[in-house]
Every structure is written in C-alpha cells, then in structure tokens.
Design a protein around this nucleic acid. Structure first.
Ligand SMILES: [Zn+2]
Ligand SMILES: [Zn+2]
Length: 783
DNA sequence: AGCACGCCGACT
DNA sequence: GTCGGCGTGCTC
C-alpha cells in the first residue's frame, strides 16, 4: 500500500511513501502524516493526497511513513480538490497551498539547531557573522534562521565551524501546540480540614478528572488547588482537548419580518442548488438580514455555513450580530487568533461540532463538512486577494468551492465589483437586488464641491466649513475621510526637483508629525526629517495631505471641535483602539478624521455628516480599477452618514464631472457600471480579459538585460495563450531595495489563462533559477 | 525550502 | 594545496 504525500516545499509535486502494516488501518485521504524526508531523513509533516496499490516510483527509493498521528483528516475530499484548483490557477504547488492554509499548530518538523562552543578568530566573513550572531542570541538557533539572517554560504561555513570545534549542532523536533487544558485528578484519599479543600476532593471522587477551569467555576481558587497538589493529594496535568463544545439550540432571538424584496432573495438563496447569487442594494437595504436568515434556514436543515468577510469588517459588532441569529455556537477564523485557537477552530470544522463559520479569506479552506451555503460579504473588497503565494482570490475560490461542494454562493455588496456586476448581467451570476432601504431614513444627500474652483482654507472648502460648524453645533458628529495617514508627503525642492524618497523603495516619504519622522508607507522604514534640499540647500516645499495634517488644520478652523484621528496609527494597539471606538460611539468626540478603518465596520449613531476630502486623487493612477475605487470610496464613505437619523455628505473633488463622482452623487450606480463596463471592453480589461502580472524583483538593475533577453524567448512560447507586452519598469520601480520589472499578460479566455499559467510556471522555473519573480494571476494591485 | 556537492579564484 | 563564495540539482 502506498500513499501520495504533499509536503511543505515549493515544488509542485507529491511524494510516494510505503504504508507499514500497522498504519494501514489509519490510512485516509486528507490525514496528516509524519514522514522521513531528504538525505538526512528529517521528519516532516505531510498530507495524504491519494492512496494507491501500485506506484511507478522505483521501490528502492521509497521510504516508509513514520506515523499517522490523528484519527481524523485535516482536509476533506472537497477541500483537497479546492487546494488543487487553487494551485493550478494561481501558479502554486499543491503542498505549498495545503500548508499555507493549515494552521501551523498541526506541524511537527525536525530541524537542525546550532549552538556556540567557543569564540575564536576566523578568517571567513560568513563564519565571523555566524559566531557573532550566536554570541548575541545565546543558546540554540535554528540552522534555517541562520541561513535567513546571514548572507553568504551559510551551510558551508557552518560545516567548517563544526569541524573546527567552535560550534555544535543537534537535531530536534518542534512539537505542535495542539489545544490543551490543565486537568486535576485525585492521587490518594486523605481527610482535609478546609471547606473548599473538602469540596474539591468530593468533586474529584465523583468525576475522575476535572479541568482547572471547571473547578474554578465552583468557587475554588487556584491556591487551594496548588496547596493540595503540594501535599501530594492531587495531581495536575496537561491534557490535549479537541474543543470545548457549546451546544446550543438555535433560537429566534431576532424576530424580523423581511420586506418583499428581501423575502424573494431569501427564497431564491435557500432554494439554490450550486448557483452564484449577487445580492446587492444600497447601504441599509438589509442585505445582511437576508443572508443571515438564509444561513439560519440552511443550518436548521442540518447543514453548515461559511461566511467570509473582509479583514477590517470582522469586528465584535459583527460577531454580536451573527450571534443574535445563531447563539454562541459560531466559530470565527482570522489571522489575529493564536496558534492554539486556529487549530481548535479547524478541528471544530472537521468534527462538525460547529455549524457556522465566519472568517477572513484564510477561512476559505476550513474543512467544513456538509457545507450548505457560502456567503462572501463586501465581495468587491481587495483584502480577499492574498498577497503572498498562493496569490488566490478568496471570492473567486469561494465560488469554486461552491461548485465542488454543490452548494449556493452569495456575493454581497452595496457596490459590486465591475466584474461581478457584469456577470450578474450576463447571467453567470443570479442578480438579487434590494431596491429599497429598510428604514424611512433617506440616503444622505451628497453635495459635490469643485476643489479647483471653490475657495478653500487649507483642504477645507467654504461649504464644508459651514456644514461642519452647523453639525457640531447640533451636537452631532462629522467624519472626514482622507485616504492617507501621516502629515504630508515629504518635501520636494523647487530649485532642483529633489524629492525625499525611501532609499529602498522608489516612493516619496511621508512626514509623520506625531513621531517627528519620515516614514516609507511601502516598507515601513523611518528616517529623520529633512527641511532643506541636501543638494542645493534650498528650503523644501511640502505637499499632500494625510490624517495628521487634516487634524492640525481642523484644530485651527474648529476650536470648539473635539477632534480625534482614526487611522492605522491610532488603532495599532487593539485595546486602545477598542476604547477609542467606544469613546467615539459615546459621543466623546465630534470631528473624526479617518482612513479606510473609519469607513468600514463601525456604526457611529451620532454621525450625520461625512466628507470625502480628496475624492478623486488616485484617479489618474496607472491601474484600470482606479475609477472603480474612487466610486466605491465615495459610496461607502458617504453611506456612513445618517444611519440613524437623516444625514448629508460632502465630496470634494478636482473633477466633479468624472463619472465615478457624478454617478455616485446621483445614486445612479447602474450608469456608472454601464460606462465602466464599456471602458473595460474597449481597453480589453477584466471581465473581458484574464490578466496575469509577471513581476521580476532584481537585486541589481544591471541584471535587467539578461532577464529581458530570456524573457523575450519565453514571450514566443506564451503567445498562443497570452498577449505579452514587453518587460518594463513597474510604476513603483523599486521596493525594499529590489528593482521591479513587470509585464501585464492578458489571456482572452479562462481556458487560455489556466493553460498559459501552467506553461508560464514551468518555463519560469527552468529559465529563471536564482531570480526572484512573482506570477500574480488576476492581480488586484498593479503598481 | 533545505541541504549537499562541485567548480573556481584567492590566499596561506 | 585548501578555503570559502556561488551556482546547480535533488528530495519519494
Ligand atoms: Zn535642491
Ligand atoms: Zn521603503
């Protein structure tokens, strides 16, 4: 008996292992295996992707599976299929893909550790660096970490140092942190005096083992437990637990009568087979009620539900709202959970003890059985695209999963992506429109101010100043949206044109007044501020606006305002961030200056005026979606106003006649889509083409010539599948010290895309060994 | 990816 | 000679 095993190495290949007699019974697809691998037979964690009687591989090369530790698989048959699809579409390997999604708590790997014996003079630079690193670290360091942190031939140098007796090595296994809990059991029966002590012993007589958590619930303090342990009466031990199951009946905590539009959508979804629905309608039209009701119906039929949400939307508020439908028996899944929590949620999925899962894009692969519905909320959100390998799009792969699981998928949005909207028209998706708002409160009136004509004080136009003053006078709140944090873009020299840029990235630095530093928003590197041109000593001029600069101007203009900044910088610390948000809700502030963070997820009841300060900057960026993003920012941000009582919005723009601005203001979304779809068609952008962004990241720009000539050879081979433009410097030509060259390939059909990507992946591997590159299929960021 | 091996210039 | 930097190839 043989098992095909996928390992966490970046080659698109599985490995064949023999299954020993004693493990045949435990053999199952999707299960975790521990196998020896490589020359050193280091133990590695793998996933069984297939089981076979025969194999082509030479029997003398085949090794034996070391262990199958679990009684259950970590991937279902369906999620294994999904992983294969992802690997195929996004130029990734099956092993790479599986291990990208699998929580690291499941991984047991053996590796080499290095430690210092004595420090002596050595000649080689790499050897010196290694000794210094070990001296600084004190203790054992993984060989791989050395290799990552030190440049040069680390492996060679380590070998030499071992031979010289300066360092030592040992092999060790990293143990996984499966969810565990402390338990207590009785060692001997002895009479004790204390009432609490007696109680604990009584409890232990009844039940052999009780978890410390549970003991504490009956009013016994931890020092009591400790004292009995010291006396040798009880014993405390760690025990692996799979999960703590909270069984709860689903009850109608919310009695909501759906409108007729909502009811229609609900019926369509709950009667769905494996269609993709596009559920759309303006803010406040009750989209969430529809999908939560549908989800509850599906759960009542005994099936499970997966709800995907963008990163910033997974707030306690949202969780509470979902809990109001399902009780506490829901599981969240996102990157802020700990290793143990992630493994625990994963197990809940595979065991089927929880029926409702809500998470970010990484929740896509949860091994949920009997999936009856997948929801993708805010389907247009860019955070659904993974930015590391595998560069998958969770919305598109959710649709794929729906087909594999044979269940309906609902895409939800107030402003669908142009691609999804178009597919709603062609019938690929079934459109479900909610035309009316639920409440009587009208949508905010949007006033557009022309920034190139109107009088301004700083960034504030006269109409905006008046509106802000009136709003805070009434005791209500104002949100000022600006799409950048920091103060302003660092200076440029009017004499010689010098611009303060990051040394590693070709982007202007942003001045952050609060920390008095220049910060690169691409790589995060900080610099001391410069005020004079280093070349000609002219005083630098500053331009651009960030939240900090808006805040400073607002303080002068509105001395009566209670102003707060709400951006990544101010909510970095989660505890302080949560406090900030609750303070805003309480009305402690009346002028909120925020970025994306402020325009998503949170409802501020007293907010009645929203302003988009620079609505159409970014409109001219070389990205075919820039217009769509302007449109979405305006609709989403202005939609924050007047959730609870009528509100208004002001949009400041340089070109008010720009369709993205005009149609957002008039709430004539269908006209925006019509024009945008027309433009996409003319210029052959998605949904009319299937792009791949090929990006080289070169250490030296001088390497470009050889890369380019090799690329031109490849170009010919790719031409049956892609339109291949020449390799050119990326719009941001340098990031983190690497020179970026890109080619924006376009396939005319999905079939060509998949075939072409496969060819591209294989050819690139052969042609560009030792060169860093990225194959971004259907990219979201083009800069 | 992680690791070994083999090639080649530089330096005892 | 041989040390150490670097490119190449293999892993069931
Ligand atoms: Zn100058
Ligand atoms: Zn930078």
């Amino acid at each position: 008996m043989y098992a095909e095993v996928a390992l966490n190495i970046p080659i698109d290949k599985t490995f064949v292992y023999r299954v020993p007699e004693n493990l045949v019974e435990k053999l199952e697809k999707g299960k975790r295996v521990i196998v020896p691998f490589g020359r050193k037979d280091f133990l590695k964690t793998g996933i069984i992707t297939d089981i076979k009687e025969k194999t082509e591989v030479n029997p003398s090369f085949i090794k034996e599976i070391f262990d199958i530790p679990d009684s259950f698989p970590l991937f279902t048959e369906n999620t294994l299929k999904l992983a294969e699809e992802i690997a195929k579409r996004y130029a990734s390997g099956i092993g790479e893909t599986l291990f990208f999604f699998l929580p690291s708590g499941f991984i047991i790997d053996e590796s080499t550790y290095i430690y210092l014996i004595k420090d002596e003079k050595v000649k080689g630079k790499t050897e010196r660096d290694i000794l210094n690193f070990l001296k600084e670290k004190k203790g054992k360091v993984k060989l791989v970490t050395l290799n990552r942190r030190i440049k040069g031939s680390v492996y060679q140098a380590v070998k030499n140092l071992i031979r010289k007796g300066l360092i030592g090595k040992e092999e060790a296994i990293t143990y996984p942190s499966l969810p565990s809990k402390k338990f207590v059991s009785l060692l001997k029966e002895e009479t004790v005096r204390g009432a609490k002590e007696k109680l604990l012993i009584e409890l232990l007589k009844e039940k052999k083992e009780i978890s410390v958590d549970e003991i504490k619930k009956s009013g016994i303090k931890s020092h009591t437990i400790k004292r009995l342990q010291e006396k040798g009466i009880i014993e405390i031990f760690e025990k692996e637990i799979l999960l703590d199951i909270k069984k709860q009946e689903l009850e109608d905590k919310r009695k909501i009568t759906l409108t007729s539009d909502q009811k229609k959508a609900f019926e369509k979804i709950t009667n769905g087979k494996n269609e993709t629905f596009l559920l759309y309608g303006v803010t406040g039209s009750g989209k969430m009620e529809v999908y939560l009701n549908a989800a509850r119906e599906i759960v009542n039929r005994g099936k499970s539900v997966l709800i995907l949400v963008p990163e910033l939307l997974l707030t306690p508020e949202l969780r509470a709202r979902v809990e109001s439908y399902f009780g506490e028996n829901i599981a969240v899944f996102h990157s802020k959970l700990s290793k143990k929590e992630l493994t625990s949620q994963w197990i809940k999925a595979i065991k089927g003890t929880t029926k409702v899962f809500i998470g970010t894009r990484m929740a896509l692969m949860l091994p949920i059985k009997d999936l009856g519905l997948i929801v993708v909320d805010e389907e247009q959100d860019v955070s659904y695209k993974e930015q590391q390998k595998p560069l998958y799009h969770a919305r598109d792969m959710a649709i794929k999963r729906g087909k594999i699981e044979n269940c309906p998928v609902v895409l939800v949005s107030a402003t669908p992506s142009v691609e999804s909207y178009y597919k709603g028209i062609t019938g690929e998706y079934i459109p479900l429109e909610l035309k009316k708002r639920i409440s009587e409160i009208p949508l905010p009136y949007i006033k557009v101010v022309n920034l190139s004509e109107e009088k301004k004080v700083g960034i504030f136009s006269q109409p905006l100043i008046t509106a802000i003053k009136n709003t805070i006078k009434k005791g209500e709140q104002v949100l000022l949206f600006i799409n950048r944090r920091g103060f302003f873009s660092s200076g440029f020299c009017p004499e010689c044109g010098f611009v303060a840029e990051c040394n590693d990235c070709a982007v202007p630095l942003v001045y952050h007044k609060s920390v008095k530093k220049l910060i690169c928003h691409i790589c995060g590197k900080t610099y001391k501020p410069v005020y004079r041109c280093p070349k000609c000593k002219t005083k630098l001029e500053f331009k651009g606006y960030g939240t900090e600069r808006v805040e400073e101007e607002a303080k002068v203009l509105f001395p009566e305002g209670k102003i707060i900044r709400l951006d990544q910088d101010s909510v970095k610390d989660p505890i302080r961030g949560a406090k900030l948000i609750s303070d805003i809700k309480k009305g402690k502030y009346n002028i909120i200056i925020g970025t994306q963070i402020a325009s998503k997820g949170h409802n501020f009841p007293k907010l009645t005026l929203v302003a988009v300060l620079l609505a159409d900057v970014g409109y001219l960026l070389p990205d075919f979606r820039s217009s769509e993003r302007v449109f979405q920012t305006i609709v989403h941000t202005t939609g924050r106003a007047g959730r609870f009582k009528p509100g208004a919005a002001i949009v400041q723009a340089f070109e008010p006649e720009n369709p993205a601005v005009k149609y957002a203001r008039e709430y004539r979304f269908e006209l925006f889509y019509k024009e945008e779809i027309e433009a996409r068609k003319i210029f052959n952008y998605p949904p009319f083409s299937f792009p791949v962004l090929l990006e080289f990241q070169l250490e030296r720009s001088s390497k470009f010539k050889t890369v380019e000539s090799k690329f031109n050879v490849l170009k010919e081979k790719l031409s049956p599948y892609f339109n291949v433009p020449p390799l050119t410097p990326a719009p941001i030509p340098k990031i983190a010290g690497r020179y970026r060259f890109t080619s924006f390939l376009r396939a005319s059909s999905e079939e060509n895309l998949i075939k072409g990507v496969n060819l591209l992946k294989n050819e690139m591997q052969l042609l560009f060994k030792g060169i860093r590159y990225k194959i971004d299929v259907e990219p979201v960021y083009l800069l």
